[in-house]
């Protein structure tokens, strides 16, 4: 697997998100209240809202456009809504974060 460094965990506010630009589009990287880090496509399955702009709670984010709630673990919409975004593997080594290139390419291939 090919890991690409994207920065330090402290670059992301607690219960917050930042986005990472890639040739295949934006990725949203989240830091939960428990200091877990997740990465998913920055593109809500509903109307394409930027998930990195949403409110982070538990292991989920609420899209700023129409309040869909997306699981950071699975990328699936929670509750009654149906839809899914790609998740991207993240590695956290003493706070230094990197994302997996393979999963990126996979996301792009589909």
């Amino acid at each position: 697997m090919n890991w690409i460094a994207i920065g330090h965990i402290d670059d992301i506010p607690l219960r917050g998100a930042r986005c990472v630009r890639t040739p295949q589009g934006k990725i949203a990287v989240f830091r939960t209240a428990e200091n877990e880090v997740f990465a998913i496509e920055d593109h809500c399955p509903h109307k394409g809202g930027h998930l990195s702009q949403g409110i982070v709670h538990g292991r989920a984010v609420t899209c700023p456009l129409h309040n869909w709630v997306i699981s950071l673990e699975t990328g699936r919409a929670l509750g009654a809504d149906q839809g899914e975004v790609h998740t991207i593997a993240v590695r956290n080594e003493d706070g230094e974060l990197s994302i997996a290139l393979e999963s990126l390419m996979l996301a792009a291939a589909e």
Partner: peptide, 12 residues
């Protein structure tokens, strides 16, 4: 500041 900039730009 972090709000307005991407965290990183990769893969280009």
């Amino acid at each position: 500041k972090h709000e307005f900039k991407p965290m990183a730009t990769v893969g280009f």
